[in-house]
Design a protein around this nucleic acid. Sequence first.
DNA 1: TTCCAGGCCC
DNA 2: GGGCCTGGAA
Length: 241
Amino acid sequence: MPTNTRATKSASRRKKQPSKSSVPLAPGQKRRFQNRLLKWYKEHGRDLPWRRTSDPYHILVSEVMLQQTQVDRVIPKYHEFLERYPSFTELADAPVAEVKQTWYPLGYNIRPERLHSIARETVARYGGQLPNDADELLSFKGIGRYTAGAIRSFAFNEDAPILDTNVIRVLYRVFIAEGDPKGQKSALWELSEALIPRGKGYDFNQAIMDFGATVCTARNPYCLLCPMKTFCKTYPFDGKK
DNA sequence: TTCCAGGCCC
DNA sequence: GGGCCTGGAA
């Protein structure tokens, strides 16, 4: 926990005021969202290759590939890449030029360079084991806040929050629905964290991204078959945001 | 053809 | 807050 958020507990009786950036959740709303999302995921979640492993290296490769590239284009390259570089060691030992060639044609070629440097550093400084600590992960070039959360939840099974465009869109629509979503990142990070059912960070995070990618889509979302429509602040969708 | 999204770095 | 690089929408 951060610091002393309850310092004045006995000093005053003022009701807890949501800080400007936090989103109030109606009673039961949190659990309803969690239950419906996880149920939806059980029935409709996609079967993706990186969901069949908990190897942090595999997870990292998939997440870096997915940073600016759609799932369908990533899948074949994910297999090819791992076949060629089965672990941090092989990747670290490979010439970066070759790694970039293997990466082709995914594009954004700074990514293979960074992935390669992450591999080298992981071998050199962490004995070939990716750290699970948030700050250590964030210290790598190429791992930002989203990817650090993804690694912690998908590879290490921690209840770490993630926030990418899918998650932003889903949480904004269901719980906020006013103002500019991008201007509310900190509230959305808080929401992302607060909504994770204890011990279920992996499934919950995978679920919310799948949900955003296939139901709560950017354009023409499938509101009619959405399990959240009874309490979604955006339902019925009017064509914007 | 132009414009914008998308995580990250700076 | 802008630029990166690229696909896809406008």
